[in-house]
Design a binder for these strands. Structure first.
Length: 855
RNA sequence: GCCCCGGUGGCGAAAUUGGUAGACGCACAGGACUUAAAAUCCUGGGCUACGGUCAAACGGGCGUGCCAGUUCAAGUCUGGCCCGGGGCACCA
């Protein structure tokens, strides 16, 4: 056999790895655990096993982490590289409902398909650690950990105006609603008061923000998190209402503008609106309230530019100006659940207040002047110098803020305050497919946590698990599950809500450390060895929700002494989305890919010949532009697909999939195969382990050695930023460099090449390793040591330039002194420059000589 | 509107601290092998209404979105602008 047959090699090795458990990762305490090795935990964001399976986009991230895991093994680490299923949650349930099956069944079928696909990619997971968040042996510990949050007082029940999605028949978290529509399915959502379980994530807001500094994460992700947390420093100020004992509390970051206040504005939902409305204004206010509540939340957000509001008839006293009365308004630009739901309106220095004042013809009182420059802007929103502000006039904005706040504190009319955009996390869902809460109610309505001995609270089997019309949870229909008698003999009723899909993923990375522990979520032993995730790779889609929630839970565990680190994911890397081409016609209607043909660079609809426009978008079933890795593996091979996905570009770049580059990688692996085989298809004798060794390198062997170290240098460098495209390029270059010299190649040189190839293309490397008489596994071979001298070579091309423009090149010994370089360059340039015209010479050793001449 | 990231050949892309722009591939063109094709191998290439020449070799000029600046030297640094992608969006 001589031809490179990817499929048979890959099948052989995948079966071997499976039965041999080559990539099994031992824990401290296990028989084969090597405690002398340091740990490395590299994790993919585990998938929700969808019905459509993996596409080539998922594969690129998984291949990337696999390359890193394999390299780390060769660097002598114990590598934890696991995979599992994020199986609970809305998408799984929606899919089950659509296909008329039970989610338990679809989840299993889909997971089987995913596992099969992942194995076809040759990924070196320890499959013994596979987990499924929807199995009782897993969610028992989700419930157990939830009770830790409960014990810490971080769980409460509250009647809150929550996002309700009529189509999904459930409550959604703030993070799950985008512009008034559900993130999943894009259905309209409305605000609705419902009693819900809520987690006090706001108690951790400050730490979630400041601990971002500890993390090696991409800046844009950190920024998205800090924007979401939305910390702002300011003050709360009380405005005493005229003829009343009420004080309206407002929040402002611009206390320095307080002397410019011309109105106090409440959100329409503010609880005091009714009380503050005078008889004369009653109709106006009622009309306005009707008008705003009729607007759906979505409309309110869409009409950002339009401002509206009305007068309540009441007045409040300015806290710092004696006897000055300020009118009280209501307006829907003020948000009820941010800050205090009320603001002091300073039209001269705030954009929205300005528009509001223009609309209602309120006066402008400028109290801040730009520092230095004269400006005639009516609404100046930046910091400056105070004017017209009694004793504070002349102060800079920042100084004025602290001085005025102190004055207000002394008068007991205000205080420093930090406000967050982050809200507490609405944690219950009125759906079936999730973890039941380990909480019950006794006859007087007290909350009774389920004792550990009675965990898990098993999700009851239901034939019809569709959401209820009235918004109550489907579990409420399982009466004999809801009502039960506790071991202590009390008759109790269970909470019928389930946890959101995020619950399982809040701690799965910890379970992977000790996945079969029946006594605890993870052992002290395991967590103190693995500590935290060293490298976490996934798409940017989870930048806010999953990553914020998991950090929150982890911090609670840290406070409970369950984990040794304050953060779960040390380094985060965002793999770029692999997109695909799609087509639309002149009316903007989508045209499925298989109806389109390329006629000399113009895309046309096959049936009509009409020109269509190509654009780039996510892969989706409906556009028929999903590319499945299985197909490429069948037609080309897994190693070829792996090499190509990496060769397409840096791992964090977004890129559209095309087949165009596949032939290049196919040739690359064929050439690799042929490197180890002679023309008759026999394995080359000089590369066998038993080949005789000569003491000195021939000239060719020396060149092969230099080419190898040049290649190794680039491959090593690609592990810094995961731009593995340059690794593949370096391999190809190596093959070009040594072509014609392969008869001379030594066994050790062949071995080294296979070693550094193996993380990228593990099957062909394993096969050639075996064929060259090695009976161990290449996967645990030591990664070769770089010899920088060899990598750079003994000579270089000296560039000689004139006024910065390269003119000549000279092969030169590396390490030559500046004076030698200058002399050589001068001699070489004698036909172009005479020495007396040179006004300056710049010499960069091992690089170039530049002569500057007068023009 | 605000914030972040990016813009390099026909295409995907590469390029330490500023120091040979276009590595490595794809596609393309020419050649070798072949009855032929596939496969394989070799060769070529940024652009140029410049000089040169029958043609070429060769030489010049211009080139990393645009304009300016710093520098002996700019894809890389600085300022302004244009385009594309992403995030946030009445958060007081």
């Amino acid at each position: 056999m001589s031809q490179y047959n990817a499929q048979s090699i890959e099948k052989k090795w995948q079966e071997k790895w499976d039965t041999e458990k080559t990539y099994k990762c031992n824990n401290p305490g296990d028989k084969n655990f090597d405690s002398s090795k340091p740990s490395y935990y590299v994790l993919d964001m585990f998938p929700y096993p969808s019905g459509s399976g993996l596409h080539v986009g998922h594969a690129s991230g998984y291949v990337g982490t696999d390359i890193i895991a394999r390299k780390k093994r060769m660097d002598g680490f114990n590598v934890l590289h696991p995979m599992g299923w994020d199986a609970f949650g809305l998408p799984a349930e929606q899919y089950a409902i659509q296909t008329g099956q039970h989610p338990r069944v679809t989840t299993e079928v889909n997971a089987n398909n995913f596992r099969k696909q992942l194995k076809l990619l040759g990924l070196s997971y320890d499959w013994d650690r596979e987990i499924d968040t929807s199995l009782p042996e897993y969610y028992k510990w989700t419930q157990w950990l939830f009770l830790k949050l409960y014990e810490k007082g971080l769980v409460y029940q509250k009647e809150v105006a929550v996002w309700w999605c009529e189509d999904l028949k459930t409550v959604l978290a703030n993070e799950e609603v985008i512009n008034g529509r559900s993130e999943r399915g894009n259905y309209p959502c409305v605000r609705r008061p419902l009693k819900q379980w809520v987690l006090k994530i706001t108690e951790y807001a400050d730490r979630l923000l400041s601990d971002l500094d500890l993390l090696d994460w991409p800046d844009h992700i950190k920024k998205m998190q800090s924007d979401w947390i939305g910390r702002s420093e300011g003050a709360e100020i009380d405005f005493v209402v005229e003829n009343s004992d009420k004080k309206i509390r407002v929040f402002s970051t611009r206390v320095d503008t307080i002397f410019g206040v011309t109105a106090v504005v409440l959100a329409p939902e503010h609880p005091w609106v009714k009380d503050l409305t005078t008889e004369a204004q009653k109709t106006d206010v009622q009309n306005y309230l009707n008008q705003t509540s009729a607007k759906s939340e979505r409309d309110r957000q869409a009409e950002v530019k339009e401002i509206s509001g009305t007068f309540t008839g009441s007045y409040a006293y300015h806290p710092l100006i004696a006897n000055k009365k300020i009118p009280i308004y209501i307006a829907d630009y003020v948000i009820a659940d941010y800050g205090t739901g009320a603001v002091m309106s300073v039209p001269a220095h705030d954009e929205r207040d300005y528009r509001f004042a223009k609309l209602l013809e309120l006066p402008l009182i400028p109290v801040i002047k730009p520092d230095g420059i004269i400006s005639d802007i009516e609404c100046f929103t930046e910091d400056g110098v105070l004017v017209n502000s009694e004793i504070f006039s002349g102060l800079k904005s920042s100084d004025a803020r602290s001085k005025i706040t102190t004055t207000l504190e002394n008068k007991k009319l205000g205080s420093k305050k930090i406000t967050y955009k982050l809200k507490d996390w609405v944690f219950s869902r009125q759906r079936y497919w999730g973890e039941p809460f380990p909480l019950s109610f006794d006859e007087s309505g007290n909350i009774i946590p389920t004792p550990e001995s009675e965990l898990p609270v098993v999700l009851p089997e239901m034939k019809d698990f569709t959401p209820s019309e009235d918004g109550s949870s489907p579990l409420a229909r399982v009466q004999d599950w809801v009502k039960y008698t506790s071991k202590a003999g009390k008759s109790l009723e269970r909470s019928t809500d389930t946890m959101p899909g995020w619950a399982g993923s809040c701690w799965y990375y910890l379970r992977f450390m000790d996945p079969h522990n029946a006594k605890e979520p993870f052992s002290k032993n395991a967590i103190s060895y693995w500590k935290q995730v060293d490298l976490y790779v996934g798409g940017t889609a989870h930048a806010v929700m999953h990553l914020l929630y998991a950090r929150f839970w982890h911090k609670v565990f840290f406070d409970c002494n369950l984990v040794p680190t304050p953060e779960p994911f040390k380094k985060l890397f965002n793999q770029g989305l692999v997109t695909a081409f799609a087509f639309k016609d002149s009316t903007g209607r989508l045209v499925v890919s298989d109806e389109v043909e390329n006629v000399e660079g113009v895309y046309k609809r096959k049936s009509t010949g009409e020109t269509v426009e190509r654009f780039i978008t996510k892969m989706s079933k409906s556009l028929k532009n999903v590319v499945n890795p299985d197909d490429i593996i069948t037609s080309h091979g897994c190693d070829i697909l792996r090499a190509y996905e990496m060769f397409m570009g840096p791992l964090d770049d977004e890129k559209p999939w095309t087949d165009d580059g596949l032939p290049g990688c196919t040739r690359f692996l064929k050439r690799t195969w042929n490197l180890f085989h002679d023309d008759s298809g026999e394995i080359r004798k000089n590369l066998l382990r038993s080949a005789s060794v000569t003491s000195d390198f021939t000239a060719d062997q020396q060149q092969i050695e230099e080419a190898f170290h040049k290649c190794l240098k680039r491959v090593n460098e690609s592990f810094v930023n995961f731009n593995f495209n340059t690794s593949i390029a370096a391999f190809m270059e190596y093959l070009n460099d040594i072509s014609g010299k392969v008869d001379q190649m030594t066994t050790a040189q062949g071995e080294n090449f296979l070693r550094i190839l193996s993380p990228f293309c593990p099957h062909i490397a394993a096969e050639l390793w075996e064929k060259t008489q090695h009976n161990n596994r290449i996967d645990f071979e030591k990664w070769p040591e770089l010899d920088l001298k060899l990598a750079e070579g003994s000579t270089f091309e000296l560039v000689i330039s004139l006024n910065g423009k390269p003119k000549k090149r000279l092969k030169t010994q590396r390490g030559s002194s500046s004076s030698i370089l200058e002399a050589k360059a001068l001699e070489a340039m004698s036909d172009l420059v005479s020495k007396d015209k040179i006004i300056k010479t710049v010499v960069v050793p091992d690089k170039l000589v530049n002569f500057v001449v007068k023009s």
